[in-house]
């Protein structure tokens, strides 16, 4: 299993905690799928609400690694302050760094992302940057101190799958030793299997599970697909070819008129 900042996860499944029909269903999705990382966020708290404490207890009781995010941040400064608040609240140096640059596609702002990543890495954070398949951006993020990359499969919440397989294959091939997580855009377990077959180390998703008619069943389906894709990758798949090749031996075939 690939290590993420020195941590070997029991499964390659990272799951978000938002948009579930109920906390009970959220908990069941994690337990049944054996997802090993939960992404979380920080949001404004009303005086006397204690909502944060209740959610924190729920997540803590799952017994998984916690990966706070900086979702919704559009500037490096905003993301850095959010990361620091998250580190204190969740007691972890891990941060899923999002610096959004485009409100319709939620595409990362590459310039702000690198700036924030460099600052946070200097400050001791273990940064998981939400990025694209761009090779130059990957290079800059690694130079900034990131030891993990999280390229998108498709824009957040779309469920479109891997919209740029060529770009993702290139990224994987260019940095074979960098742990990489496909983050966002997956809608179906078959897409998860495809990503793992391409050699990615883990998957992070939320909407595809939380918004399914049966989130627990869908979480299990993704878990099985991720495992299948990983097994297939390790089994060294055959090379595709254009011309047919019979699988049944021709030698010994009866000669019949």
């Amino acid at each position: 299993m690939t290590a993420f900042y020195g941590v070997e996860l029991p499964t390659a499944f990272m799951l978000g905690t938002a948009q579930y029909p109920s906390p009970a269903i959220l908990g069941a999705a994690f337990r049944e799928s054996a997802a090993s990382v939960a992404t979380v966020s920080v949001r404004r708290e009303a005086a006397g609400a204690q909502a944060g404490e209740g959610f924190w207890r729920l997540i803590r009781d799952l017994g998984v690694h916690v990966l706070p995010n900086t979702a919704g941040c559009y500037s490096p400064g905003e993301a850095i302050t959010t990361a620091k608040m998250a580190r204190e609240l969740f007691e972890t140096d891990w941060i899923k760094l999002e610096v959004i640059g485009h409100s319709d596609s939620l595409q990362p702002d590459p310039f702000g992302l690198v700036e924030a990543a460099a600052s946070l890495c200097r400050d001791g954070f273990k940064v998981f940057p939400y990025t694209t398949e761009d090779l130059v951006l990957a290079d800059r993020l690694l130079d900034a101190g990131c030891e993990v990359l999280m390229p998108w499969g498709a824009p957040i919440g779309t469920g479109l799958g891997l919209v740029n397989p060529y770009g993702l294959r290139s990224l994987r091939a260019q940095y074979p030793d960098v742990p990489m997580v496909i983050d966002a855009g997956l809608g179906l377990p078959s897409q998860a299997a495809q990503a793992m077959e391409m050699g990615f180390d883990a998957l992070l998703l939320n909407t595809a599970v939380a918004k399914a008619g049966d989130p627990v069943a869908m979480a299990v389906a993704f878990a099985k697909a991720i495992e299948a894709g990983k097994l297939a990758r390790n089994a060294d798949p055959m090379e595709p070819r254009d011309m047919a090749a019979p699988s049944t031996p021709l030698i010994g075939k009866a000669f019949l008129q």
Binding site: A18, R44, W56, A71
Partner: peptide, 10 residues
């Protein structure tokens, strides 16, 4: 002042 607490996230 911004005062935040743990919440669900993706």
């Amino acid at each position: 002042l911004e005062i935040v607490a743990p919440r669900q996230g993706g």
